[in-house]
Write a protein that binds this DNA or RNA. Sequence first.
DNA 1: TCGACGGTTCGATTCAGCTCGAACCGTTAG
DNA 2: CTAACGGTTCGAGCTGAATCGAACCGTCGA
Lengths: 228, 228
Amino acid sequence: MSIGPSITRIAAAIGDPVRAEMLAALMGGRALTATELASCAGITKQTGSSHLRRLVDAGLVTVRSQGRHRYFGIANEDVAHLLEQMIGVAARTANPRLHVGPKEPALRRARVCYDHLAGEIAVDIYERLLRSELLCFVGENLTLSADGVRWMRRFGIDVERLRSQRRALCRACLDWSERRNHLAGALGAAFLERLFERGWARRERGSRLVTIRPAGELGLKRAFGSLR
Amino acid sequence: MSIGPSITRIAAAIGDPVRAEMLAALMGGRALTATELASCAGITKQTGSSHLRRLVDAGLVTVRSQGRHRYFGIANEDVAHLLEQMIGVAARTANPRLHVGPKEPALRRARVCYDHLAGEIAVDIYERLLRSELLCFVGENLTLSADGVRWMRRFGIDVERLRSQRRALCRACLDWSERRNHLAGALGAAFLERLFERGWARRERGSRLVTIRPAGELGLKRAFGSLR
DNA sequence: TCGACGGTTCGATTCAGCTCGAACCGTTAG
DNA sequence: CTAACGGTTCGAGCTGAATCGAACCGTCGA
């Protein structure tokens, strides 16, 4: 009994141009309908439907029916991490000459990673949180210090509510463009959510791109000192 | 310009039964010849050759020619991590009824992850190293404390030599069976090497399985207290 | 009740890519 | 030098899977 077949199941499910495009779209964190996904992969909805079934069967994607719509989304954080890691390996093994894309710099700066913030800014924030000991490691576990809890509460995040979720509060997630960690987990998701609520950041339609608005630039600078 | 195609390149390279089997074999950490890899995937050497070319083209595998042999190996730690992560996702999304295999428990206990130790024992060792502050986090970086350096030197590892490598000294690697970290990086590799040299552990031929021998059981117990 | 719309199922077609036999190249051993 | 051996290349056959048109099912709005 080898592990080969199990890897094949997962990798073959991802390793088709259409399905990869769908997963990439879903990495934006929003759940999308079958038709939306088909159109953004450039195929008909019949074909899209069969691809989506494969993704669901493989356990990479989950469905939620709502009226006559069916919303598809990345199944869980593990899968999101796997994809993020894969993007990283792909970027590093890519043929350098087709490596530069127009939107690439903006994506490197700030983007959505499933449900939390990634990119230069996210890495920078994460490291500042650690340096000022709002986040710290207890053994190998990343945790929020007492100061950190107060800080987050002031920022508008109900930490207690997050703790009651089954999901881990803080996790480190390896950033594919920076090769350094950024904040994931329930807190990472809540933090990004809060940036949107405050109007500090805006998510670009149909892309993983996140734009930091002037108010956010200012607010983050005030909160953390100047961002790189 | 989307990221879809780049993911496809990597995932499609992995997502073939033969190539997955080859990669699984290479995750044992040893470089293998084309013929060996073909035979362990159950195909002829012509077919194997073309698969290996695809793996090399995708940047997942590297070759080293030596006389009339060509030795293939996992390209780098990133790729190894990606595969490890993929095994984890595969295990967690697997159909539970075919989840149990004969060698599974032993594999969960101790196995090679590319070039370092993984499994229950590895996770346990890692956590004990942290708890006794031989390893600690400085900000987000895992480092060896002064005590840790002394400890490793006593254990027979030349830490200074490892530091001079370009490769990171300590890294945490997520264990797919345990979902907790174990020690990777140059130190992780050296530690496993030392276990073999001392005769504390033995690697099973043609598998990722590592057997801890009585001397090792005793020695580790003496070094760390009783292992789980 | 009916038409519009989102989504799936079925069947036929097409094509990429996996496979192996045969031939070939380079290295090593005798 | 020659035979054996590891490995690759080439060509032809085959199969699994992606694709789309057409038909169908369920929900929504009028």
